[in-house]
Amino acid sequence: MLLEDLLFKPENSLVVQSRHSRLGAETINGDGFGVGWYGALDEPGVYHSTEPAWNDRNLREISAHAAAGRVFAHIRASTGTDVQQTNCHPFRHGRRLWMHNGAITDFAAVKRDLAMAVDPALYPGIEGSTDSEVFFYLALTFGLEEDPPAAVARAVGLIEETGRRHGVEHPIQMTVATTDGDTTWAFRYSSVGSSRSLFHSTDISTLRLQYPDNPVLHEISDDARLVVSEPLGDLRGAWREVPESSCLVVRGGHEELRGFLPTPARG
């Protein structure tokens, strides 16, 4: 699909959400944005900007011409770190993309301990100053490229252990999405048990039968799946909420829902 079919055209597109988020912690997400997509090369392409998504002419121009079969897009509301390109999601390492919605609580207090837990061989790849990027590199350290659910569980376990050692009652709030270009994993979890919203689309072929006159449903393939922080429209039956403390795995036209809980980082 063209990127604009996801970023601009839907009723509640990501660009609309950047100014008028219905379910986010912040109504306005104007501290930059990023898009990652898989094209002709092994590594995904990324485009980052510190402009608000609604105000970036280049995003509209690129999205009207670039097409891909797998797209990651993120709008940012800073939780305290600088507004700069290296702090914009999605983050990339090799073929892997990563996005995080939420925060590591009192990140300044735990940053050093968490950063020192990153594999020294991976550490030079950290370019920005966000909690989300440190989280990504912790997951890489714990084996994200081999077993994403286990790696994220160990990274979250370490974040919670570290936070509580520093007196933080609820160390993490998160929805996370990561992909290797073939499979996407999306996680919903928080230490307080009330996480950021997360939804996934339902079967497209079923929706076509329910809404035969909706042209959008006839432009995308049967195996299309969307994972979003909030629905892109109000089409009844089109979206299912991802439950609390769970991991959604999307591969091809199939999705699998699993439970998710942190595990001891050194277990």
Rank of each mutant, 00 (worst) to 15 (best):
V168R: 05
F8C: 07
N214K: 10
L217Y: 03
E145L: 09
L14V: 06
E241S: 14
S229D: 12
F136M: 14
E61H: 12
G157Q: 02
G267F: 06
L2Q: 09
R76K: 02
G30T: 04
V192P: 02
H200S: 08
L3V: 05
R92P: 07
T263K: 12
H74A: 02
P149K: 02
A68P: 03
W185P: 00
A67I: 07
S201E: 09
L226R: 13
H200R: 11
T141W: 08
T175V: 14
L14A: 05
A66Y: 07
Y211C: 03
E169L: 14
H89D: 04
H93Y: 15
N29K: 10
K111E: 14
F136Y: 10
V134P: 03
T50S: 13
L23I: 03
D180C: 08
E145S: 10
G94T: 04
A265V: 07
R154V: 06
L248Q: 03
R96M: 13
R95G: 07
E4G: 04
E146S: 12
V110G: 06
L207E: 09
S21T: 05
S63L: 01
S190H: 06
G32H: 03
V118F: 09
G267K: 07
S18L: 04
M116L: 15
A155V: 10
H218G: 03
H65C: 08
E241I: 12
L235D: 08
S18V: 04
V249Y: 01
A121M: 10
H100D: 04
A77G: 05
L217F: 01
G163M: 09
T179G: 11
G32S: 04
T50G: 10
S21D: 09
W239D: 10
T79V: 04
M116T: 13
M116C: 11
R60L: 09
F33E: 02
T79W: 00
Y137G: 01
D213C: 05
W239H: 04
C88A: 13
N214V: 13
L122I: 07
W185A: 10
S13P: 05
T50V: 15
Y189M: 01
N29R: 06
V46Y: 01
A224S: 10
A67C: 07
H65L: 12
L138D: 05
G125D: 01
R251I: 08
G253Q: 06
S191V: 02
R96V: 10
I75F: 00
H166N: 15
G143C: 03
Q173S: 14
T50Y: 04
R240M: 12
A238C: 07
F142H: 13
N12Y: 13
L232H: 06
A115F: 11
F72K: 02
L2K: 11
A265H: 08
E51M: 13
L257N: 08
G267Y: 10
E133H: 00
H65I: 07
Q210N: 13
G39S: 14
A67L: 11
T79Y: 01
S229F: 03
V156P: 01
L97M: 13
G128I: 00
S63W: 00
E51G: 06
L226Y: 15
A150L: 14
S221P: 04
G24H: 05
A177S: 14
V168L: 05
Y123W: 15
Q85M: 11
I126E: 02
L41M: 11
D113F: 06
H200T: 15
R57G: 06
